[in-house]
Design a protein around this nucleic acid. Sequence first.
DNA 1: TTGTTTGTGATTTATTTTGATTATATATGA
DNA 2: TCATATATAATCAAAATAAATCACAAACAA
Lengths: 253, 253
Amino acid sequence: MFAEERQKQILQYINEHARASVAELTSVFHVSEATIRRDLKELEEAGLLRRTHGGALANQSVGFEPTFSEKTVQHADEKKRIAAKAMEWVGEGDTVLLDSGTTTYQMVPFLASFRALTVVTNSYRILQELEQAESLELVSTGGIVRKGTQSLVGPIAEQVLEMVKVDKVFLGTNALDLEAGLTTPNLYEAQMKKAMIRAASQVILLCDSSKIGNTSFAKVAAISEVDVWITDEQAPAEVVKQVRDSGVEVILV
Amino acid sequence: MFAEERQKQILQYINEHARASVAELTSVFHVSEATIRRDLKELEEAGLLRRTHGGALANQSVGFEPTFSEKTVQHADEKKRIAAKAMEWVGEGDTVLLDSGTTTYQMVPFLASFRALTVVTNSYRILQELEQAESLELVSTGGIVRKGTQSLVGPIAEQVLEMVKVDKVFLGTNALDLEAGLTTPNLYEAQMKKAMIRAASQVILLCDSSKIGNTSFAKVAAISEVDVWITDEQAPAEVVKQVRDSGVEVILV
DNA sequence: TTGTTTGTGATTTATTTTGATTATATATGA
DNA sequence: TCATATATAATCAAAATAAATCACAAACAA
């Protein structure tokens, strides 16, 4: 790998994780600390991130803001449009299951306006936001707290999902690939998503085009298990075509 | 965690709580008082908060109004003392179950200082607070959101409690009466508390003297089902005596 | 080939951060 | 008021982290 490539990837890594330590980057990229520091120095001089003792922080939204909202900034426009479109599948009286993640999170402001809606979620961030909405019935899956994604995972959460049946699940994913299907970096999250798919009559995938072609560690499902996939218009035409051919309704916004 | 991240979180913490003591921040963030003071000094110099003797105050009092802020908690002093005493029953490596409620909520600042502790709770308020604490394993019972008490109740939560076994449960109650036992105004809450008692090897009741002699709608348990009852010294002597006679360890603080 | 440039890692040196210690300052109650 | 307890500031030492320096190897040009 060339130095320039590595720097680009370091930047991407830090933007995704909001932060990274030198040690962490050392083991991810298999280079010495000296090299990582040199890279970080250059990236900082280019104004692309902020260094701290021990590592670096993503540059988005200077000042003091929670990690999560920093992350939502990436492709925020696409995510908002996708979330808004997804609301067409939500009707009065429905019971919907909301995955954790930045895209599904964008559905929150729309959900609050319903008069009768049951929202089940494993995201305590979503729960926290919807707490104010008087007219909703809110259900938490419970489980072990995963701080990174502000979600609840593990056997308890999966067991709870066995106990409920929902009309629709709104699912996010970290990576979507024609062959690998839906994948995420974390095994527990993947298990949860699987359980969510089982619990729902209809699976609606919210996934913007930046994730297409990526593959991550843990397999969630094949694309054919999805009923509806909402993405943005930057999605490559041939990917859209192939997914449609496999029987999935694809919506471009 | 980097220094800058810690400072960001300290600010967030203080804005949420309107205030924080140095000791409190020390246990939440696992750094020395010296470090906390240095952080507070920098934050003050940046104009982001106001320092006082013993801690710091949030700068903007508008906007943030926690549902049960310290001001609105009745008998806050007694509750804090009771909660502090209750911590004597919590040891490193324990798995503890925390009921929702204002008294158990006072245990939160103490819990954050443990290095190895599993906290199970049906209070999403407690969950929210402990999110900061890196060293804790946090488990949510899940269930239906009850906004009034910021808790999770219902069949899902009860089912989850069937799946776990904890060393100790720290239970709150709305009313304690020698004949009626423990009672609360809400049937679902009562069911939850029952399930909590079943899930725990030891039942520790946190209940200040203002609730003694009251009876509420839904029965939770007889007083004899409690192992330890922590209350304040205003508790009527004859009540204490009778409860002790029924085999309960009563602690006055 | 040979010399030069560039990127890298190892080593040494400098800096920063942190916690412990001690002295000083501030609050609280008799 | 003063005495006492508590909190803060100042100082220092240790640890972690960063920068500077050097040496080596690969890529490249003459």
